[in-house]
């Protein structure tokens, strides 16, 4: 059962891409892998003001993740609380997970030759902290939301 989701208040988001770098810096990633993305549609005029809204995407932490099923070494795992993560020592960098994921979410880290993906910064969560992107979002537009079990 998924416990968390990342929610973006697009009214507050200013498209500064801080979250992207906060995430990379926290995980010490080199140039190449990008684990969360900010995107927007082309501007459209709304009552005389050209507008657009921002979207944030990291990983959907699927209920039945294809990336986990396909992983040949069992490195891609899903935790009790729903977080899908890479158990790095077991990863051989075959990137089958990225092929299986409908959105190609897992990224290749050229420095370690392993897959890397958003894990809601579970080390930080476990330490009672918030994910990097949430903690440092320039406008406090990102929130980690705990989904209530039904």
């Amino acid at each position: 059962m998924n416990t968390y989701t990342l929610y973006l208040n697009s009214k507050r988001c200013i498209g500064c891409h801080g979250c992207v770098v906060h995430c990379k810096a926290n995980k010490g990633l080199p140039v190449g892998p990008i684990l969360c993305e900010i995107s927007h549609e082309r501007l459209k005029s709304v009552r005389g003001v050209p507008k657009t809204e921002f979207k944030f995407r990291s990983c959907y932490h699927c209920e039945d993740p294809f990336c986990v099923t396909i992983c040949p070494t069992g490195a891609m795992k899903k935790r009790e609380d729903g977080i899908v993560y890479v158990d790095a020592p077991k990863c051989i960098g075959c990137m089958a997970c990225a092929g299986a994921c409908p959105w190609g979410i897992p990224q290749h880290n050229p420095e370690t030759n392993k897959a890397v993906k958003c894990d809601y910064c579970m080390d930080r969560l476990d330490a009672g902290l918030q994910p990097a992107c949430v903690t440092k979002c320039t406008t406090h537009a990102l929130k980690l939301v705990a989904m209530k079990e039904i």
Partner: peptide, 24 residues
């Protein structure tokens, strides 16, 4: 440097993209 955040007392953690790119 392993982590940089905006001073909680003033910025409540907030930092821009450049601020996180300091170690780079």
């Amino acid at each position: 440097p392993t982590w940089i955040e905006g001073n909680q007392h003033i910025l409540k953690g907030a930092l821009c993209a450049k601020g996180s790119a300091g170690p780079a």
